[in-house]
Write a protein that binds this DNA or RNA. Structure first.
Lengths: 349, 349
DNA sequence: ATTATTTACGAAAACGTTTAAGTAAATAAA
DNA sequence: TTTATTTACTTAAACGTTTTCGTAAATAAT
């Protein structure tokens, strides 16, 4: 029983030629029915379809791609897929693209500019039909993307995006609003000494969040104390260092806005260690609505980014760009889109 | 200035033919140097390399793939990339594969068997060189993977894997050990009424964890009370329902092993709501070392799965399988590998 | 000096599609 | 009826590689 030759359900080789031969047609006709071209008799169309089904014919995407210069796959460059917002966005991008017949090739830059450069090169040589990119924290020079734009490969930036002169579609969260909401919330609650822990100010999202922060401070007529503003890569270790500085001597801050939930979580952690009661003596707001922010005690007030909406917006835009083919004008449209954000108030404020 | 025609850094069309022509060589020779074939004079080799660099030649993977029947890309099917362990595993798989020149095409089944079937079909027709799969919770029939195995596409299952007669490579965590460690830990701490919240018993990981659980109970001579064992999909809502049942009447359990951290987190949440002191009156152990388990209060004891190791093991195995080409015997080796786990004790026990 | 062997390369046939151009038959217009 | 138009198909040329086979020259063996 076990040694019987395996039943060959799926014939290895059947090309458009084979089908054509058994049906006494030309390969061109087969191709036409497969691609729903007009000018083929409906009788032969159904004959072909039947045979296609019978032999389990699967088109060879490489042959087609070689001819049409399309791969039906889009590349994605992202710092790290395990970052919450990105994971969510990617999930919806992948699902949406799949519905439209595209494969998604996901690449991680690990926040390394060098890696990002290499990945755009390999995606370019892979002949992906388009690329979606969320840049490194440290990407200030975007010229390595030129190879795509100057060769007509649609390019969409999201989240961490270049400042505008760069000729590509940009879809970003409303980070200045997010920054404003967070700061205004603290101010409304009566905070006077508000610290702000920002990411490096070369990155679009942190620039914007800071802008929003300043706007709120301005509006509430609270002067910004530069001793309470910090700029560094937003991870737990850095957050801890900053907290040590902040709590080295009194007066302590009474509110902290962290531009990042992992930072906010560490802020909270430190505060608990120091027995600073949250929110009584210290109010904390984070950014991104990381799942952890909801389950920590006290739970974290944070800014929701609606990653699913962002993902859908990206795909919608992408499909547009793929529709208007290289025949389009040299400067097509290059839309810039901003997706909304919202404050989620929890127990830390 | 702005209207100047864009400098064409990257020439659109340069094939192996073009290079051959300008160098007065044949395409075959160019191909040979590009692929490091022997029997090409080192002088011409360097001439070719120079020209390749000069014109910025990029090979067309589709043409090559059409000829060689290789795509240099591998497909990955996973329930959801935002699940912690999977995100980590995928991250390392992607990084490792990239180092070896492979693209990774990531697909999400969303735990839907139908989707999983469709995805394996599309991956097959995409001609990926291999596929890696973590199955759906509900996949009991694995025949939709036959299309791969019977056509010689290397296939590696990980995490949620078929029971063994299926002819594919399997790499799994040592879930029976994990289950054992968790239960033994509770037993050592003196728990007498231990509840176990399991995933559906059709899924390999939950079968194994349960086996480990039973082994420990056996070893400690504690009878299993079937009223304290629950099987259902492991999400927060289900966990809450189960907890309501468990705490509907006394005596309460004094230890709970949840086969999943999100379940364990909800268990803890519920216990806190009920003012059941953890770990004093109730000890909780989770599974996977989700980042949330470390920051919740009290922090969760859980089973670490070392996702990075798993990811590396998968890629190592994959590269082996890709090396021994279709020339291999009908039943190559089909290794089965188990990666280790470890208990992380925190404040919930 | 003749014959075998190796080295360096070229010619050409694949791989499986798509598509421009052509053609024969059927239909419509004159 | 003759001529134009449409319809349904075929032919054949791409697309850009890889690879088998062949061959001329150079080198080694006899």
């Amino acid at each position: 029983m076990r040694l019987l030759p395996m039943k060959k359900k799926f014939s290895e080789k059947n090309s458009i030629h084979d089908i054509a031969k058994t049906l006494r047609l030309s390969p061109a006709t087969i191709s036409r029915v497969l691609n729903n071209h007009p000018h083929v008799h409906h009788a032969t169309r159904s004959r072909v379809m039947a045979m296609v089904k019978e032999v389990g014919y699967k088109p060879n995407p490489m042959a087609a791609g070689l001819r049409t210069r399309k791969t039906n796959s889009v590349g994605l460059i992202v710092p790290r897929i395990s970052m919450y917002v990105h994971a969510e966005i990617i999930t919806t991008i992948q699902n949406e693209l799949h519905r439209h017949g595209y494969n998604l090739i996901i690449c991680q830059s690990n926040d390394s500019v060098e890696m990002e450069k290499e990945l755009t090169r390999t995606l370019y040589t892979s002949r992906v039909d388009a690329v979606i990119a969320a840049c490194t924290l440290f990407t200030t020079d975007f010229s390595h993307f030129d190879i795509l734009t100057s060769n007509g490969v649609p390019l969409i930036f999201y989240d961490r995006v270049p400042v505008r002169p760069y000729p590509a579609c940009i879809i970003k969260g409303d980070d200045v609003r997010g920054g404003y909401l967070a700061a205004a919330h603290l101010l409304e609650l009566g905070c006077k000494r508000i610290a702000y822990i920002s990411g490096p100010l070369v990155c679009s999202i942190y620039i914007d969040r800071f802008t929003g922060f300043k706007k709120a401070m301005d509006q509430f007529n609270v002067a910004i104390d530069n001793d309470l503003i910090f700029y560094h890569e937003l991870n737990a270790e850095n957050a801890r260092k900053t907290m040590r500085k902040l709590f080295a001597k009194k007066p302590y801050p009474d509110g902290i806005f962290a531009a990042n939930d992992v930072t906010a979580l560490e802020v909270l952690h430190f505060a608990k260690e120091m027995h600073v009661p949250v929110p009584a003596k210290l109010k904390i707001v984070g950014y991104s609505n990381d799942p952890r922010s909801a389950i920590v005690t006290p739970s974290l007030t944070t800014v929701e980014q609606f990653p699913e909406r962002t993902g859908k917006a990206i795909v919608a835009e992408l499909l547009q760009l793929l529709k208007v083919q290289p025949a389009s004008s040299p400067v097509p449209v290059l839309p810039e889109m901003t997706t909304s954000v919202g404050l989620i108030r929890r127990m830390s404020t």
